[in-house]
């Protein structure tokens, strides 16, 4: 990853980048919520910001939406400086927070109409836009009901609709599907994909690897206020570990013998899972794959299936956020490491 550093001066952002963050620091007393974060979101793409709870994801979104002033660093959104041009910046962005930011007492329609008016749409246009978005988010039937009677998914959709009233160029989605059931989560994903297809740039924070895999073009992993990895989804996967080979024998009884042969051939990473009836081999490189196939082939083992898998994003995530063990801490005795 080549990184062109831009001096925190009047140089402004590079074109093509909807969001540019350089060295953002934010302290809350002793805690460093953000400790020098750099990231870039290219126009029209989705950047997934991954991290565990308390990693600084929400603080980052709050800095980028002018709710929190950073202690150091620069950030540009849509070409506007978060510190010096907050008013223009607010016109560029839409924010959907972790907690639905709609007025519970107002109806869905009134919520959207209010935002439209606050964004200077004429009354007629605000009305039309509210109706249009209610339709699009399948909320037309519930339009007149107070938002507090909505289900969690409906509220989240209303919240998304509210952040889209002003057709923002950049959307922040702060854990948009946390706490949603799978069906509603899919609805939200569909909507996000649609927004991107229409040209929006999205910065998405999430704890769910699946979500990032589904939606994001690029990934930035943060932990304790720092970027610990960034790149494309597949890039990150290869960075963390090679592929895993799964061999399902035709006769489960042959499993131990298969493993023994592989060990003899120097593939010590071959492990047998008797329960699943599968032989797994961690592959360091492609040659090892050829060796496995060769060894199993010469000995004429019956093979039902054979496939290789990249590590899941969950595994990637665990691998890079794994905290170094504190020396003094007692290690759980029974833990077996594969």
């Amino acid at each position: 990853m080549t990184r062109i550093d831009i001096a925190p001066s009047d140089r402004g952002p590079r074109s093509g980048n909807a969001v540019e963050v350089r060295g953002i620091v934010k302290h809350y007393g002793e805690t460093k919520a953000l400790d020098g974060v750099d990231l870039t979101v290219r126009q029209g793409t989705v950047l997934g910001v991954l991290g565990p709870n308390g990693a600084g994801k929400t603080t980052l979104v709050r800095v980028l939406s002018t709710l929190v002033k950073p202690d150091a660093g620069t950030a540009y959104v849509g070409g506007y400086d978060v510190l010096r041009q907050p008013r223009q910046l607010r016109r560029t962005i839409g924010l959907t927070g972790q907690y639905a930011s709609v007025d519970e007492l107002l109806s869905g329609y009134e919520n959207l109409y209010l935002i439209g008016r606050l964004l200077d749409l004429p009354a007629k246009e605000a009305k039309a836009r509210a109706t249009e978005l209610l339709e699009r988010f399948s909320l037309t039937e519930a339009a007149k009901r107070p938002a507090k009677t909505y289900s969690g998914g409906m509220r989240r959709r209303l919240d998304l609709a509210a952040s889209m009233i002003g057709r923002p160029r950049v959307l922040y989605l702060d854990e948009p599907t946390t706490g949603l059931d799978p069906r509603t989560r899919n609805e939200v994903w569909d909507e996000v994909q649609r927004m991107v297809a229409e040209g929006s740039t999205v910065l998405l924070t999430t704890q769910y690897m699946e979500e990032a895999e589904q939606l994001a073009h690029g990934l930035t992993v943060i932990d304790r206020g720092r970027v610990i990895a960034s790149g494309g989804v597949s890039e990150l996967k290869t960075q963390v570990g090679g592929r895993t080979l799964h061999v399902t024998p035709a006769h489960t009884a042959e499993l131990p013998e298969m493993a023994r042969c592989l060990h003899e051939a120097g593939l010590t990473a071959a492990t047998v899972s008797e329960d699943a009836g599968v032989l797994t081999v961690q592959l360091a490189d492609d040659e090892q794959l050829t060796t496995v196939v060769g060894v199993l082939g010469t000995r004429s083992f019956g093979i039902a299936s054979i496939d290789t898998k990249l590590p899941s994003l969950d595994e990637v995530f665990l691998a890079i956020t794994a905290k170094p063990a504190v020396t003094a801490a007692p290690t759980p005795a029974k833990e077996t490491v594969a």
Binding site: I93, L95, S101, D120, D159
Partner: peptide, 13 residues
Amino acid sequence: QTGVMDRFRTLPI
């Protein structure tokens, strides 16, 4: 305590 104020504060008003 709700998110409504966050929304208002991110609007160009």
